[in-house]
């Protein structure tokens, strides 16, 4: 708790300096958060190149609008909010381009029944950590956007229910429900591996 308070205090000081056109302070903000933002975006989009571009765009937008940042919000929450909006826009673009190239029915509403789109889902292979990571990422990417966003923010980036509620502008109850649904969907997708070790 003390660490969180210290982080927020340090962030506040950095933001104040960045608002006064201090590029070094903004640089420090980027160094603090680029890894978190990149990892979050990486699991939302289809390629590492897209993730890199959107992470750049997140910080460019933060730079452009740092003066509108309200100090009562956390910098962490604010940056994730910018990143989330960019990911949603990117998702829409990808959806449009996919539907133009190869029309297919939407499975956004049937996430519980949805499987990881990989026929070689072999539990033996998953013993390797790298392979497991790949399967985990594939399972995450196959989740509907709303469920993927909350599980990434909660279970991978470690944000609180309240922070996610602020980022997505959703009631706390909705966030909790989505997190549980997302975890259940992930459990179903990873069931072959989970069963093999239980």
């Amino acid at each position: 708790m003390v660490a969180v308070g210290n982080t927020m205090h340090a962030d506040f000081a950095l933001v104040q300096r960045a608002k006064a056109q201090d590029r070094a302070a903004f640089n420090e903000i980027v160094l603090r958060y680029k890894s978190k933002v990149y990892n979050y975006i990486y699991r939302q989009v289809e390629s590492a190149a897209d993730a890199e571009d959107l992470t750049q765009e997140t910080f460019v937008r933060a730079y452009l609008s740092i003066n509108s940042f309200q100090s009562r919000a956390s910098l962490n929450t604010w940056l994730f909010r910018i990143a989330t909006n960019l990911c949603i826009d990117q998702g829409r673009k990808e959806k449009r381009s996919r539907s133009l190239l190869a029309p297919r029915s939407s499975d956004e509403d049937n996430y519980v029944e949805q499987e990881v789109p990989d026929s070689s889902f072999d539990p033996q292979e998953l013993a390797l950590n790298t392979e497991l990571g790949t399967k985990l990422d594939a399972a995450l990417r196959s989740l509907p956007e709303k469920l993927r966003t909350v599980i990434l923010l909660y279970d991978i980036e470690g944000l609180s229910y309240e922070e996610i509620s602020a980022i997505l502008d959703c009631p706390l109850g909705t966030i909790k429900s989505r997190i549980f649904n997302a975890r259940s969907a992930m459990r179903d997708k990873l069931a072959p591996y989970l069963q093999s070790i239980s």
């Binding site: 599980i151 975890r183 992930m186 459990r187 990873l190 989970l194």
Partner: peptide, 8 residues
């Protein structure tokens, strides 16, 4: 469910 969360 616990294993899934640990994995995440």
């Amino acid at each position: 469910l616990k294993q899934t969360i640990d994995l995440l």
